[in-house]
């Protein structure tokens, strides 16, 4: 790996999230190899690459969810707004309040209503103020473009919604705790094309208030909705650039081969 391509081009002066020389392991398997990556505030950053390239694992190191897997190990540094989230005395629970996550499969909590699902991050943290909860639920559901579809059935079970609606419910749930950063791990790979399009539209709206880092298998999706794209291959960050440039004028041969569909 040549460090030259590992840096952001053009450099990001004040990154909200910054990974420095991140290495992640599953027991003996070295899944992420020395990745450094800066994330621009209020942008959408896409992580692309073939299956098993370490992009999801890297994403999960950004909110310390990687370490929840047995046998997982981490080396390196990740700073959020200048603070090392792996620093001594940092509580992973606190870190995850600031860096939310949306998963591949829509996963509303079983036997909770739509409303309860949205505000669960607050209610389980001890917030009891009815007005605050109602306002948060409405704001988060409007923000995730689900409000109009569910405002008359907030008491219905979260699992009664369609797959695409469930995923937007999960986005609302992540938004409700007001994290500055939201990570998305292939959020549309289990959805139909129309639901996918709705979530892609949503990304453009979301970045006005939060910073999004999204892992996707879909290169068109990365090209359509991200400001910057990082190409991962065999656990390494090969190229990181503005999406317009990376997809039209890739600097690395492997990037070019991947985006032109010659492997992966």
């Amino acid at each position: 790996m040549t460090p030259a391509t590992n840096a952001a081009k053009p450099p990001i002066p004040e990154p909200i999230l910054s990974a420095k020389d991140v290495n992640a392991y599953f027991n003996a398997f070295h899944a992420v190899r020395g990745v450094s990556l800066d994330v621009e505030p209020n942008s959408v950053t896409a992580l692309i690459g073939p299956s098993g390239c370490g992009k999801s694992t890297f994403l999960r190191t950004l909110n310390r969810l990687h370490e929840e897997i047995p046998g997982a190990r981490f080396e390196g540094e990740v700073t959020l707004e200048g603070e090392n989230i792996y620093g001594r005395g940092m509580d992973p629970v606190q870190v995850r309040r600031k860096i939310g996550m949306v998963f591949q499969k829509p996963n509303p909590f079983p036997s909770l209503s739509i409303y309860e699902n949205v505000v669960v991050g607050l209610t389980l943290a001890g917030v009891k103020d009815r007005r605050l909860l109602d306002e948060t639920a409405e704001r988060a559901l409007k923000h995730s473009a689900l409000w109009d579809e569910v405002k008359d059935k907030l008491r219905a079970p979260g699992t009664s919604l369609s797959g695409g609606q469930q995923q937007r419910l999960c986005i609302a749930r992540a938004l409700a705790v007001k994290p500055p950063v939201i990570l998305m791990d292939e959020p549309t790979s289990a959805l139909d094309p129309i639901s996918t399009a709705r979530i892609e539209e949503l990304l453009g709206e979301l970045k006005k208030e939060v910073t999004v880092v999204i892992v996707t298998h879909n290169m068109q999706q990365a090209a359509r909705c991200s400001d910057r794209t990082a190409f991962f291959f065999m656990g390494e960050l090969v190229e990181y650039d503005r999406s317009t440039r990376l997809f039209t004028n890739p600097q690395d041969k492997r990037t070019e081969q991947y985006i032109t569909g010659r492997f992966g």
């Binding site: 909110n63 969810l65 929840e68 629970v93 606190q94 870190v95 995850r96 309040r97 600031k98 939310g100 996550m101 998963f103 591949q104 499969k105 996963n107 909590f109 079983p110 669960v120 991050g121 389980l124 943290a125 999960c170 749930r173 992540a174 705790v177 994290p179």
Partner: peptide
Amino acid sequence: VPDHIREAGLGLGLPRWK
């Protein structure tokens, strides 16, 4: 209960016991 439900809870910044 699938594991990704537990991860979603952790991802919301909830302690494991909760």
